[in-house]
Amino acid sequence: MKRLLAALLIVLMAPLAPAAEQPPVVGLVWWPADPADPRHRFARETEECLATTLRERAPGVRVVHQGVIRDALYPRLEPATQPPNEQAFAELLARPAVQERLRGLGLTHLVAFTGGTDVAPFQGGILCGAGYGGGGCLGFAWQDKTTTLAAALWNLERRESVAHEQSRSEGTTIVPAFLLPIPLIADTHTAACQELGAQVARDVLGEPAPQPGTPPR
């Protein structure tokens, strides 16, 4: 009996192991949402790319997509009622009712992203007809593309804005034509989005930005 009591006393006096730190939960939302902006059509692609990059660069991070956030905060993030600037967005996040809804989603961070791809008109020319190899095409055309993306990151546990990031990628889609046009498409959107996602992942994890000349992970 004495041995049992001694063993129980040792267990009770043993220091408790620290609780495992929970991984971050990051919400993504396109803001400002403007369906009239032609770049808005890239919003879903940007969201999926950012989510994928965050999971790759910060394993364990859980991503909550913007549809869930917009539903939870409806109608505060709709085009007609959304915050007009970042200060107003911060004031929205400070409201107790908004904080309660975001806590209900388990969010630790919120990323508001914007931007898209501007596409210039095609230049050059391609002619097709019966005179070119019995109905083929001949010529050369090209199109310049520029993708610019930006993101603001809030730490919801500390209730403060912690980072602003931006990425930019330029490229040219070329279409040589000899009998058949063969487009070689420049994917500037993926390049810019992956760069932005890597920056946001570092901010979420609290990692310093790489020094110039340091190869990416």
Rank of each mutant, 00 (worst) to 15 (best):
E56A: 15
P35R: 04
R168N: 09
P75F: 11
T146F: 04
G213P: 09
W154H: 01
R44S: 12
N85W: 02
V64R: 00
V68S: 11
V61N: 03
P79N: 07
V11E: 10
V162C: 08
A33V: 07
Q82D: 06
G116S: 04
P176L: 09
E91R: 14
V175T: 15
E160Q: 12
V25D: 02
A19G: 10
N85E: 06
F178G: 09
A94P: 01
L73A: 08
A130E: 14
F42G: 05
R159N: 15
R55E: 15
H109V: 01
E195Q: 14
D34L: 02
D118R: 14
R168M: 13
T172P: 09
G106K: 00
K145Y: 10
S167V: 05
R39D: 10
E78R: 12
G129T: 06
R62D: 08
T108G: 05
P15C: 06
E160P: 08
M1N: 12
L5H: 07
T146R: 13
A97H: 13
P121F: 06
L73G: 06
R158F: 05
P38F: 05
I126K: 08
R70Y: 07
T117S: 01
P32T: 03
Q82F: 04
P96D: 11
P15Y: 04
P181L: 07
E48T: 09
W30D: 01
W31L: 03
T81W: 11
R217T: 14
T52F: 11
W31V: 00
E56D: 15
A58Q: 03
T148R: 11
A33R: 06
L93E: 05
E47P: 01
R55N: 11
A88W: 02
Q194F: 08
G131R: 11
G116W: 02
G197V: 04
T114H: 10
G136C: 03
P32Y: 01
Y132T: 14
G134L: 08
L153A: 03
